[in-house]
Design a protein around this nucleic acid. Structure first.
Lengths: 198, 198
DNA sequence: GTCTATATTCGGATAGAC
DNA sequence: GTCTATCCGAATATAGAC
């Protein structure tokens, strides 16, 4: 068989992309390494050259995906003037990402990574969620957010926003999320925002 | 080894309870049938007598758990006079269940059953969630709920309420859900309820 | 670095005694 | 209906040529 001309970095990238597609489609445990070989057109030997084992591949995929998501989220929200605007930009980012790359969105929302990596940090303790909690603590101090437990308010807000993503990914919502982002954001904001705030 | 004196129904029940504990603790695919043998003290032969195979056991467990949950949910909410009261009773039920039986709660919230059963119906299409959507459609007609897309409003409300459950199960919230159920409910209701409604 | 061929382990499932 | 002993396929991972 003809050998690949691509660079090692490209090979590694193709492996990870194929793995993400398959993990989303059938789940980690229903995906064998030979499946990844077929989906990526990379041989099993190369896969085990780039990654120690299947779990190591999954961990690298998770870490890199979460890392780039977090960086992009912070970039997209940093220029906001107040909390309401920050959260609106966050929702816009999430909903646009879901429309543009549903596979990546589904991967981040639903991969049960704790079943793969015993010392995995739960999503609600990871940086994106903790950042939102911190924003809400500031928002409470500033009088933009209804006083209360910031963890609970963050859960109500983000849980609502993300459940709408799930409804879209499951086909319950027929319309793209971009079309409903205002309605969803306004509802979620009503739960936590002080009404007088613009 | 001494044979069991229990009835077949008890044997079946012990198998299912052990399976649920293990599925929640390590996940379906990290649980082998020999694991279930150890956890339940039922032999592998008996397990395969009561269930066709491991997947059939998981399907029965899921169906029976969801069925009894749905029945109890409907029973607990039927006497409410209006939508706000109905949803409050629903939240009370969910949060009390989480405190009383976190394993069952976690099983229902996080089992990725689609990876086990190819023709599994997603949670957001299952009876409990569809019931809430139907309630909200009525609530909109009655003027109790802010006019809008009932799917989205249901997602915002239930997503928020359930994310708080997740925060509790993951140890982010140190207090029991019973202690915070009013705060969480009031916030989630603000997202969807017409303010004038009592 | 990439490939093919192969070894080993492990877990789902069955046979058949009691 | 419950049990023990066993089979067998599938999947992870390795060896070693190119």
């Amino acid at each position: 068989m003809e050998r690949n001309r691509q660079t090692p970095a490209e090979t590694r990238q193709k492996i990870m992309e194929a793995a993400m597609r398959l993990f989303v489609e059938r789940g980690y445990f229903n995906t064998s390494v030979p499946d990844i070989v077929r989906e990526s057109n990379i041989s099993i030997g190369s896969i085990y050259h780039h990654f120690e084992n299947k779990q190591d591949l999954a961990k690298a995929l998770y870490a890199e995906t979460l890392g780039s998501f977090t960086a992009e989220m912070l970039r997209r929200t940093e220029q906001a003037r107040n909390l309401k605007e920050k959260l609106r930009l966050l929702v816009n980012f999430l909903y646009e990402l879901c429309d543009a790359d549903p596979v990546r969105m589904e991967y981040m929302l639903f991969m049960r990574h704790a079943e793969i990596d015993p010392d995995h940090v739960p999503v609600c303790l990871s940086q994106p969620f903790q950042t939102v909690i911190h924003w809400l603590e500031e928002g409470i101090a500033w009088g933009e957010v209804i006083p209360g437990n910031a963890d609970i308010l963050a859960g109500i807000f983000m849980g609502g926003v993300l459940k709408v993503v799930e409804l879209r990914l499951r086909g319950v919502l027929a319309t793209s999320l971009t079309e409903v982002k205002e309605e969803a954001f306004e509802a979620a904001w009503r739960a936590i925002g002080v009404p007088s705030t613009v």
